[in-house]
Every structure is written in C-alpha cells, then in structure tokens.
Design a protein around this nucleic acid. Sequence first.
DNA 1: AAATAACCGAGACGGTACGTCAAGTCTTGAG
DNA 2: CTCAAGACTTGACGTACCGTCTCGGTTATTT
Lengths: 199, 199, 199, 199
Amino acid sequence: MSDGRGPAPVRGRPRDAGRDIAILEATLLVLTEVGYDQLTIDAVAARAGVGKPTVYRRHRGKAALVAAAVEHRAPATPPATPPGDLRAALLATVQWLADQIAGQEIGLLGALFTGMRSDPGLAAEMRRILRRDEAAMTQEPFRSAVESGERLVPGAAALFAEIAPAVIVHRLVFAGRPCDRPFVEHLVDDVLLPLLQVR
Amino acid sequence: MSDGRGPAPVRGRPRDAGRDIAILEATLLVLTEVGYDQLTIDAVAARAGVGKPTVYRRHRGKAALVAAAVEHRAPATPPATPPGDLRAALLATVQWLADQIAGQEIGLLGALFTGMRSDPGLAAEMRRILRRDEAAMTQEPFRSAVESGERLVPGAAALFAEIAPAVIVHRLVFAGRPCDRPFVEHLVDDVLLPLLQVR
Amino acid sequence: MSDGRGPAPVRGRPRDAGRDIAILEATLLVLTEVGYDQLTIDAVAARAGVGKPTVYRRHRGKAALVAAAVEHRAPATPPATPPGDLRAALLATVQWLADQIAGQEIGLLGALFTGMRSDPGLAAEMRRILRRDEAAMTQEPFRSAVESGERLVPGAAALFAEIAPAVIVHRLVFAGRPCDRPFVEHLVDDVLLPLLQVR
Amino acid sequence: MSDGRGPAPVRGRPRDAGRDIAILEATLLVLTEVGYDQLTIDAVAARAGVGKPTVYRRHRGKAALVAAAVEHRAPATPPATPPGDLRAALLATVQWLADQIAGQEIGLLGALFTGMRSDPGLAAEMRRILRRDEAAMTQEPFRSAVESGERLVPGAAALFAEIAPAVIVHRLVFAGRPCDRPFVEHLVDDVLLPLLQVR
DNA sequence: AAATAACCGAGACGGTACGTCAAGTCTTGAG
DNA sequence: CTCAAGACTTGACGTACCGTCTCGGTTATTT
C-alpha cells in the first residue's frame, strides 16, 4: 500500500511490557481464587484489563499461561535459621516449605496434569519451574547448615529435596490434611533427622 | 423374610448393572488412552454403547465418573516376596508399587485436582479411594515381613505408606522420570531401609 | 358397531376405562395451562396419576393424544336464540362461537400444525374433529332460524360455517385481539347479514 | 460524516452481515423442507455454514429465528390486474394470495403457535410480520382498482384484508384442501363481490 | 383354584435436540 | 505492528423429552 507520503516514522507499536506483568499477576490471582480448571482466559484477560488476543499473543494457551505466571512469581527466600541447632533449622525450613507449597505450588500441579500429556515440551517447562522453585527452597538451608559445621551425610541436600516436598505434597493432596505442627515434627524427627544426620 | 423391614422396595425398572460396569470400564479405557482432561462424557458413553443420560444418571460429572471408575478397578495385589530377605522384599514391592502408580493412579490425580476445589465431598471420596489403594498396596508386604520375623521399627508400615508413594509420585510427576531399577535401589537403600530397619 | 363376530375375546386384564378418561381430562387441563408445545406426556401422565406407558398404550403420541382429548370433550350446544330476530340470533351465536373457539379450539391448532406434516392420517383425524365441532356450533342456529321463517339465501348455513369461524380465528390468532362486542357487531352487520339475508 | 455526533462507536469485530443473511435463508430453506417442528437449530446452523452460538447470538430461539427469517423474506408483490374488470382482478388477486399463503405463511403459523404463549413479545412481533405481509398482499390491488374507477364500498380494502386471508387459511389448515380454481371463484362470486361492490 | 395374559406405576433406556460455555482464531478501528 | 473489543468455529457440557422397554405387582378371564 504505497500512500506516497514517504517512509512511516513509526514502524509498529511496541508491546506494552506493563501488560505482560498485568496478565501474569491476574493469572496468579485468578488461579488462587478459583483453581486451575475453573480458570478461564476470559477471566484473566478481564482481570488484567486486557483483550483476549493480547493474552494469546504472549502465551500459547491456558497451561502455558499458568506456567509463565508461576515462573514470574519470584521464588520466596527461606527463613534464616539459627546456627548450631539442626533440628530447629529443619523444623523452621520444613514448616516454611509446607506453607509455600500449600499456597503456591498446588496451582501449577493442575496445569501440569492437564498440559503434560498433550504437550510434552510444556510439561518439561513446568517441571523446570517446579525444580527451580524446589531447589531454591531446599538448597539454601543446607548451605548455611554446612557452613555452620553441622555433621550431615553426603548428599543430604539432595535427599532433603527429594523427600520433604514429596511427603508434604502427598499429605496435602492425597490426604487433604494441613501440614500442621505435629506433622512437621513427625517429618523432621522420624524421617529427616534419622536420614540426614551422621550417626 | 426374617427381619422386620424386608428388602428395599424396588419401584420402576431397575438399573442395568451391566451398564454400570460397561460405563466404568469404558471410562478406564478412555482415561488410559487420552488422559483425564481429554476424556469426554460423550466418548465414554459411545464406548460403553450407552446414551449420555445413562451416564449422568449414575455419575454427577466427569470427576465423579473417573473416581467411580478408579474405585471399581480392583486394587492389584502386591507380589509375594521371599521371606527372610527384607531388602529383596522391599525392592520387589517398591518396583511393583511404582508400576502400579505409573499405570493407574496418575489418571485419578487429574480428577482429584479438577474436582477437589469445586466439590469437597467428591475430593474426600477420591482421597478415600487413593488411600484404599495405597493401603492395599503397602500393608500386605509388611504383614508377611513381620510374620517372617523381620526386625522392623514400630510403625514401619505406616512410615512406608507415607514415604514410598510420595517419593514415587514426586519423581513421576515432578521430575517426569521413570522409576527404573537404579531409582528403586536408591529409594530402598538410602531411604527406606535406614528408616525401617532396627539398627 | 356390531360386526357379527360376537364379543371381542378379551384375554387378560381389561383396560381401565376410568384411566382413559383421566388421561384425556388431564390432557385438556395441561393443554389449557401451558399450551400445545409446552405440553409433555410426562406431565399429562403425572397429572392423570398414571404411568407413561399407560398413555402410550392408548395414543400414538402427543398429537394423537391431544386430538383424542379434544374429541372427547363434548361439543358445547349453542345458545337458544329468540325467533323472529335474525340479527339478534346471529349476534348471540357469533359471540358464543368466538368464546368457544378462544377457549377450546386454539389448543388443537397447535397439534394440527405439528402433526399434519409428519402424519397425514392424524391430520385428517384432527380436521374431522374440527369440522365436527364447527358443524355442531354452526348448524343448529340455522335450523331453528329456518324453522322460524327467516328469509335466508340458499346455502346460508354453509356460508356461515365457512366465514364466521375463519374470521374469528384469524382475529384471535393473527391479530391477537379478543372478539369483543364491537367486533362481533361488525362481523354480523358488515359481513354476515349482507351475505346471508335475502335482499 | 458531517454531523457532529459521529458514527456509532463500534467496538470489537462487527457482526458479519453475510452470516445474518445466510442464517435467515438457511432457516427458510429448512422450514420449507421439513416444517416448523422438525426444524432444528443445528440443522439451520449447519446449512448456513455457521456455528450454533452464532445463531443464538442473533436469535433467542427457534420461534424468534423463524420469525426473523419470515420477516427477512421480501413480501411478494401482487400481480398487476387489467383495469376495468373487478371480478377478473379479484380472481387473480385471490388466487395469487392463496398461493402465497400456502407457500409461505403456513411456516410462520407454527412458530406463532409455539412462541406466542411463552413469549408474548415474540408473538406480537410475529403478528406484526403477518400483518405487514397481509397488508402488502391485499392493499395494492385495491389502490389500482380505485384508481381505475371501480365502484367499491367504503372500507373495501379493509374488509378484503379481513376476510380473504381468513377464509383461505381456514380452508388450507382446517379443511386441508387446496385453493383451486372452483374455490377461488366461489370466494369471489359468493363472498367478496357481494360485499365489496356497490350495488 | 390355578394358570394365563394383559394391565398397571415407576422409571431406566438410547436417542436427539436443546441452550450455554470456553477455547483459540480472526477482524475491526484506533493508536 | 500492537491494542481492546468482540464475533467467529468448534466441540463439550449437562438437561429435557421422546417413545420404548422392563421390572414387580395387580386384576380379570379361562381352564
């Protein structure tokens, strides 16, 4: 279409980065409120004050949108623990981990179950995010523990990362019961300490 | 009729029990083929050779249908293990457990995630089924182990039921990796045996 | 109808004639309340205190049921008119005719429209009923009028039967307006009297 | 746009007018083929090459759809009649009117009977359409007749519009007989001419 | 009296259409 | 080239009613 008026000064409107964030945060909001499978793209778009195509321009679909939203959310940093008391450190860390999982990770699991079969690439992406978050939540405590001279078995951090989130998720999802103080103590005293501590 | 109340007075044409079964088995079939979120009631009805209302007359919706189908499926019986060798018994049991979970339990998890938020009663029902199956898969091995004189810590069966399925599911879903022989040996040698065996 | 074959060899329990009537009267009730296309066989059966097959044993379907119900309803007898005053007689007869049509005949028209295309035999049956009722409602007044010496054109009764119901129905259905006194006078004075009376 | 208010602020993608027409014409087609009560929205949508929601976005239901389709259909124009011969003009007009009603109007009557009770507003709309069509079919002949100097009673057009369609519909629907030549002559000679012509 | 057969109410059955909802794509006009 | 709005196709949803059938049970006639 030559309009004879010379070169256009503006070559395309740039994407508004603010809308990226609005979409992701609206997604997290809706996800928390109604859960994964009740979440609709329309609702997210409306909440973000954005049109539906603006969402689809950025994300391939519902599952990818949720994955991006979860990724966007900055991983929380575990609480600092007093040095010298491994049990107290584990108790604090496990409790905090359980709270994080209950509050944030559950939402992504629905997306994972839904999207993993039809889109393996997306499933891999979700797992990457889950691992990133779980790593962030499990590695830091052990780095400081080792620095403070705790006597731990080799590979303790990996073992902790393998067992603690698994048992917590299992309790939350399969048993539908909260990770209250007695459970946390049970997990630390009967499972984690015997495994991690050098006897 | 020796009791005072007699049998339930059946009014109208009784439901065809054959159709109950056909529906549940068609559900399991479709569930296995296409996964939970691609499963449609129409497909199940067509596969069962049944009308859609016949499905809805028996089940409130997709989640409840899948729950009933999983419940209907008889829990598999764990393999018999040779007495006297705890490690061998655990290896066999864990491997079998992982296979069961990979093949059967994953399907219900999608239903659980979908139905649990909007219908707490249904979520409770699904958890009951999951617990029933996990109990069936974890209790039996320990009964024979104890009978054969193994020296186990108190509550070993409960601990096994709490940890083994959790870690297996976590690996399958979160890591997306199969429960192969090295993983099973790791789980038994590095986690289960240290925890369960009397030292 | 004696056909020389003697009484029908009734084997088994005979049909309950009381239920015949209950069904037909329930049909008329429901028809009046909700109209033809909102009428359901279930509703009729429930209203009659009868099972659905009991209805279907007697009638082929909704249209036939309504036809039978309308046929069952005894045709009302037109009001006696004072002899010697043709205009007064026509006014009374037309008003009564309009009331009858508004109250009773409309229901069958829905059935006629629905059933006529798919079942010509049924349509013929409905037309027979409609003609029977319209004949009953239009012939009697003219017999007495002729007997009392009114001077009418030949074929006056047929002309009346052809025009009066047609214009009344047209007004009720097409215009959606009631057949009030001014309309009746208009119909008698401007249409019927000029046509029927010998000039 | 030279007016100060500017055009209507159309937001979003405008409706495709071509689909409006496709839907209405598909409706007329299906209506003609299978009749009102065998007409399904799915069939109309499929015939129009359109999704079901696209139909429902435009029409509230079957009755409203049929009403809109009938409204969309341009009313046919009555045939020109030779001036100077009132009887010939009436014969031609009545025959044409009967053909129009038999071919087109019957379809709407089913919709009228179905929709009128549950939706008075829709019934009013249908009556408006029926009146529009009947007016178009009955007024024009009389305008030319009057122009050509025929001696007609006052209100002849209104009387014709009140009687002719009524008797024609009555014959078609109630008697189930076609409006053939003898009937048309009877209607003109025995009913219309005596009423309309100045004696 | 017993056997037979059709009746009965209740309601499940396969099927068809309903009217709604969400997913993901496409089109418009504005910026 | 992007944006908001929203129409679009597709396809599944869960419901209603149709007309048939099947159950336990009842009521007459026939043997």
